[in-house]
Design a protein around this nucleic acid. Structure first.
Lengths: 231, 231
DNA sequence: AAATAAACCGGCTCAACTGCCGGTTTTTAT
DNA sequence: ATAAAAACCGGCAGTTGAGCCGGTTTATTT
């Protein structure tokens, strides 16, 4: 399967409505609709800025309006309540996280075919974890632990993200085809490991982080060579 | 070295003032001083409850007073500003996290000498990550990412916690004595891995978490057998 | 071109939070 | 016993956030 087709399939399975009305695909019907969509996007982007800059408690209506350079009235017109905005932010963050990771990974694969694919995947994942989108994801994930209303929005989206990986990643990593369980384990391992590393980054210095990263990648390399040990 | 002495040394190095005035050690001078200390402890405990229950943004003066069943005036008498309380919470969380982990680990070691020590340590660490104190630690760590004032309090404490481990853990794991670098790597690995697993716990089901936990423990077991490979 | 609808704007109310204060009660010192 | 100090209490002002509203401007329909 072509990489582009796979990306498209995964993204549209993840967020059908969001994926459908993308600038490249969505037909630009009337101007008011385009204008409205642009403004919503602008507000969501401003909201993600607030999230990354000031955390979930800093995602206030006033701050978002200011960051987006939009009046509070306009903002209220597009998102009646703060939670509506948060919901749009969750969708955007989840969607964009997968989109950028896939693009980055397939780009790396297409350019460097000498390195083992597992190494490329680990590197790409570690890069993806250091993006603005993942910072926003982390804020949402932690806030959702103690905010039931947010959890009701975030967790289904996060589970969908996870489910898409579980069902589709065999396409992206064909060499693991005989080792289905280990591939899933590797994915879970890398997700957890890199998330934990990001959390410890302000405490650990770069040398330690780098050593950990290499150790994690090496561990995954070994796992891929192992003959499907039932664990 | 005896386990009790090691624990005492690590805890007093971590938080000298807090460790000194513990109920078992601190001389109960005058009643007002004891009363004051008890009230402070009660308020800090209530604050940690708020933190675990409602996250860092839920750690408000009103909520803490209510959770501690104390009037707001009394609270203000002991902690003039919210940040003073937060500072006490950070100290308590950092101190208590190490205290409970050490107690749990040495208790496990003293009772079951048949299992490999590395297994016991991994299990104890995974348990420690699921405590109320670690939940509070996680909230603080994430909030500190976007709150400079909190970071100025939390990060030095977290670094001190980390430094104590780096300098003292060889006493707790004598069998790694020849493998200093790998022991440090193992500690960093387990910290990051379990933190990431906790973050993913609301998304991953118990089976996956358990598989990851076993894989991580097995990886550490192998690392301890490996002849100090420079990484 | 008139009417309808949708995008935009800033001011308003209500609630919550922080920090402060005057005053009361309990403990300690002399 | 009496004065000083420390623990306790609830109410106040100032600030900030969420949500709502009337009104203006811009696009669309007929």
């Amino acid at each position: 399967m072509k990489a582009e087709a796979l990306q498209d399939r995964m993204l549209s399975a993840l967020m059908p409505e969001l994926h459908a009305r993308l600038p490249e695909n969505g037909v630009p019907e009337k101007w008011q609709q385009r204008k409205s969509a642009m403004m919503r996007e602008r507000l969501v982007s401003g909201a993600i800025d607030c999230l990354v800059e000031s955390g979930y408690p800093g995602l206030t209506t006033a701050a978002v309006a200011s960051a987006s350079e939009v009046s509070r009235g306009t903002m209220h017109h597009h998102f009646q309540t703060r939670m509506e905005l948060v919901s749009a932010v969750v969708d955007q963050v989840v969607y964009h996280r997968m989109r950028t990771f896939l693009a980055d990974y397939f780009d790396a694969v297409s350019r460097r075919t000498d390195e083992p694919m597992i190494e490329l995947a680990c590197d790409a994942h570690w890069r993806s974890v250091q993006t603005r989108d993942y910072a926003a994801w982390l804020e949402l994930a932690v806030a959702a632990r103690t905010d039931a209303e947010l959890a009701a929005i975030f967790e289904p989206a996060a589970r969908r993200y996870d489910a898409i990986w579980a069902s589709e990643m065999i396409e992206a990593f064909p060499q693991w085809r005989e080792d289905w369980d280990n591939l899933k384990l590797a994915h879970d391992f890398t997700s957890a490991m890199h998330a934990g590393m990001l959390l410890h980054k302000p405490i650990f210095d770069d040398t330690r982080i780098d050593r950990l990263r290499r150790f994690a990648a090496r561990t995954m390399q070994k796992l891929s060579e192992e003959p499907s040990s039932r664990t």
